[in-house]
C-alpha cells in the first residue's frame, strides 16, 4: 500500500459515486480526470460552461476542431445526443439547480463546507471562471484534492485562510488519504487508507474528524 493515493486514484474514487444518468460538471485541470474512470454501464452527461452538454474525450491529434472545446480550452468531441447552447442557458443549468454533481479542486476546504479554490491572494492575477456559480448550483458539490499542501499543511481546516469561492457549499471531499463528508458543519470521516491510523490521519487534518458509525477502508486499484 502506497503512503497516499495518486491524483488518478483520487479521481477514480470520486468517479465511483457518480450515479447512472447524472448530469456532471468537472472543474478544469485535475477534476477533468474523473471522466476517465466512470464505471462501465453508467450513462453520464458532461456539461461544460462554454455551452456543450454531452461532450466526449479529446480527438486524435490533427483532428482538433477549435470551435469544439471545453472550459479548459481543450479540444473535445461530441457524443450522440449532444447539445450546444449560449452562456446564459449554460449557467441557468448551473444556477437553476439542474446539474446533479460538480467536482472541483481546492486550495482549502473548511469544516462548515466553505471552499477556497480561486485566488491565492494579492500579487497574482485573480481568475474565478465558473467556480463561484458551480458551488451554488449543482445539487452535490464534491472536492478532490491532496490531503495536505506541497509543504505538508492541512487543506482540510476549521476556517479557510484564502479568499472564499463559496460559503457552506461542499458536501464531500475525496483526498489522497480519506473520504470525508461535511455534515452539520463537521468533517465526518467515511473512509481512510487502511494502512493509516486515525491518529495519524487526524494529525494531517486541520480540523476535527468526527467518527460516526464505522470507517470504511479506502481501497483503490492501481490506475
Amino acid at each position: 500500500m502506497s503512503a497516499k493515493l495518486s491524483n488518478a486514484q483520487i479521481a477514480w474514487r470520486a468517479a465511483q459515486d457518480i450515479p447512472d444518468g447524472a448530469y456532471v460538471n468537472l472543474g478544469i485541470g485535475f477534476p477533468e480526470m474523473v471522466a476517465k474512470f466512470k464505471p462501465e454501464g453508467r450513462e453520464v452527461v458532461y456539461h461544460t460552461e462554454n455551452g456543450i452538454l454531452g461532450f466526449g474525450e479529446a480527438p486524435p491529434p490533427g483532428e482538433e476542431d477549435w470551435d469544439l472545446i471545453n472550459a479548459g480550452k481543450k479540444p473535445v468531441t461530441l457524443k450522440p445526443g449532444a447539445a450546444f447552447f449560449h452562456h446564459a442557458d449554460s449557467f441557468a443549468m448551473v444556477r437553476g439547480g439542474h446539474l446533479d454533481v460538480a467536482i472541483l479542486g481546492a486550495y482549502e476546504v473548511a469544516e462548515n463546507g466553505d471552499l477556497a479554490n480561486w485566488s491565492t491572494g494579492p500579487g497574482s492575477v485573480p481568475a474565478v471562471g465558473g467556480a463561484m456559480d458551480l458551488v451554488h448550483g449543482a445539487r452535490r458539490v464534491a472536492v478532490i484534492t491532496d490531503h495536505v499542501t506541497k509543504n505538508g499543511k492541512p487543506k482540510l481546516v476549521t476556517k479557510c485562510s484564502l479568499p472564499l469561492t463559496g460559503v457552506g457549499c461542499v458536501t464531500r471531499v475525496y483526498t489522497s488519504l480519506a473520504v470525508v463528508d461535511i455534515v452539520d458543519a463537521c468533517f465526518v470521516l467515511r473512509e481512510k487508507l487502511p494502512g493509516m491510523s486515525l491518529d495519524e490521519l487526524q494529525g494531517l487534518t486541520g480540523a476535527v474528524l468526527v467518527v460516526e458509525g464505522g470507517i470504511g477502508d479506502l481501497i483503490v486499484p492501481e490506475v
Partner: peptide
C-alpha cells in the same frame, strides 16, 4: 464570475437593471 457575467449581459439585453444570484455570496 462567469455565470454572473453572462447573466449581467443577458439582463442588459432584456431590459432588467438588476437581479439576485447566490453566486459570490460571502
Amino acid at each position: 464570475p462567469q455565470g454572473t457575467l453572462a447573466e449581467r449581459i443577458r439582463a442588459a439585453g432584456a431590459g432588467i437593471p438588476a437581479f439576485y444570484t447566490p453566486t459570490s455570496y460571502g
